[in-house]
Design a binder for these strands. Sequence first.
DNA 1: ACTGGCATCGGAACCGGTTCCGGTTCCTGG
DNA 2: CCAGGAACCGGAACCGGTTCCGATGCCAGT
Lengths: 336, 336
Amino acid sequence: MPRLSDVARVAGVSKATASRALSGADGVSAATRSKVQRTAEQLGFRASGAARRLATGMTRTIGVLTPSVDRWYFGSVLHGIAHMADAHEHDVLLYDLGAFGRGGHEKFERFMRRGEVDGLVTITWSLVGGDLTRLAQLGIPVATVGEPTPHSRSFSLDDDAAGELAAEHLVRLGHTDLLHLASETEVQPFDSSSSDRRKRAFEAVSIRHGLRMRPVTTVPTHLEGAHGIVRALLDRDDRPTGVVAGTDEAALACMLAAHQLGIRVPEELSVIGVDDVPAAAAFGLTTVRQDPARHGEDVVAWIIEALSRPEAEPDRSHTSYAPELVVRASTAPPPR
Amino acid sequence: MPRLSDVARVAGVSKATASRALSGADGVSAATRSKVQRTAEQLGFRASGAARRLATGMTRTIGVLTPSVDRWYFGSVLHGIAHMADAHEHDVLLYDLGAFGRGGHEKFERFMRRGEVDGLVTITWSLVGGDLTRLAQLGIPVATVGEPTPHSRSFSLDDDAAGELAAEHLVRLGHTDLLHLASETEVQPFDSSSSDRRKRAFEAVSIRHGLRMRPVTTVPTHLEGAHGIVRALLDRDDRPTGVVAGTDEAALACMLAAHQLGIRVPEELSVIGVDDVPAAAAFGLTTVRQDPARHGEDVVAWIIEALSRPEAEPDRSHTSYAPELVVRASTAPPPR
DNA sequence: ACTGGCATCGGAACCGGTTCCGGTTCCTGG
DNA sequence: CCAGGAACCGGAACCGGTTCCGATGCCAGT
């Protein structure tokens, strides 16, 4: 591997000049610059990131602590993060902590001992409260996406509004007998997880409009587990006329169960979800949209900005995004 | 930020000893080691990754060039990569090149100028052939997952076998009139993309068993776009008795269209896909499974291994994974 | 008592860039 | 014709770790 000093020697200049020429700094004549650039190209020179970082003290890297990236929400946030980081010429270092709660802790500890990143974003559920407070003492900008938290700057969907929007949509269509399907959260850092907030918003709407009160049912976040439960709930005479699901996964499981039972959607049963996963569009599911990639972009923009004024007092504010109702073919007025 | 020299000074030892104590190297008495460790803890010392890397010459980082990670396949591969990298205490640097073919190129060029990673994995479609050959000249282990390629070591599902397995399953059930739904590939580095291989395998099965020959239909990879096309195909009297889809997305779009048209699955129409996405299990879709996370793990294992013997000749071999038939409720013998 | 050897530690070089500081050269204005 | 300054460049220090090598202390063996 050719080093900078090799390039300098071949080009007949000093290391200092070579560095200036290649980095784009001024104080180098155009002729010299192009000569250096040419020989660098010729030698296949690639600057050592480690050396540059050591010399400048700027890492230009942001770390991401996340649960398994094979899930839509986390993948989408990560996509947004990568996009914005790239726009600011920052690298992104990925720490996939695996499934919720399981085994992520020792990875986290290892992460804490390394001083590689100058900004950090944690995605909901990847950590519990105690870890978050330790992160906050790291001396670098830390932000969370997916859920409000008092321990750091945070970005998330306004879950209260989302739950309300979903329920209100069915109420406005004339429904008075609704069932809420809450998605299970394996680990929840605070007592007000997204799922709980959506559930409580639903209950508030129920009370406000005097709907029939039914017990809330919690289903697993994966479709397969949810399906059997939902099917049992729908396969009875006093079933509700509409289902407000906490997530699209639950809503889709519900649509499937309805299909299998011969219950027509939306004529006999309305179904609404939250998230707007790709499958929701395909299956014509009415839902409340959030845009996780956008959250990822914003969190990185904030970190970059925080990096630019190192001596500011820590910002622990929360940004919540307004949900957006997307009406498709799974909701309609109740039968008769 | 405390440096190693600070720890050394406070602990009353030299930088050399402090380094040895913290890195776990021997040549340090137990007493000294624990003293150093204690003061490091106390000072909140975190070693500079850049300095360590510069000194050792070992980056312990593997780069990943991938299309948008918000899609199931890419997210899953990345998950496997992250998992295995972590097991070997390597970091993973993510380069999300965005949607297929669009705008990824300048990001790629920027990547090429940085010398940050000591191993690289590219995920299918993130690059075109020319870029791959440049990568191969980088002097670091490079591997591709998702498709066979002559330019580097590669790992992928055996697409020929997958296409055959899907078609043969329906043939064995007694079907003689099948339709193939190929998933569109926006960019394909070689003339034999996954989609094409699956399609050709289907055609081979058709000929071998003397099935009715129907034109292959190509549908977009996102469910929404596929749905309308599929619906039109099914809404006619001479529709096939079974559909062999190139991906689960296409298969699910097909199931949905069938439901909407009142065509019962599997009694009146059998549907089979490839991939085994989470939704497939939920919707009872018979499919041919592949395990992208496994591919991600293996590719990293190979890179780590290649790193350990730097002077070996380049390995451009291909590993293909056998597909696995997962029979669920969407396939049955043809009607009558 | 003396020597050989092992365990432990410190000094200093080094990794490969960036940047401060000072020295030339050359051009401009008085 | 000379002072002042701008443009350009080189030497050397520096970032913060790791590691080679030599020095020291201590104990066992003869």
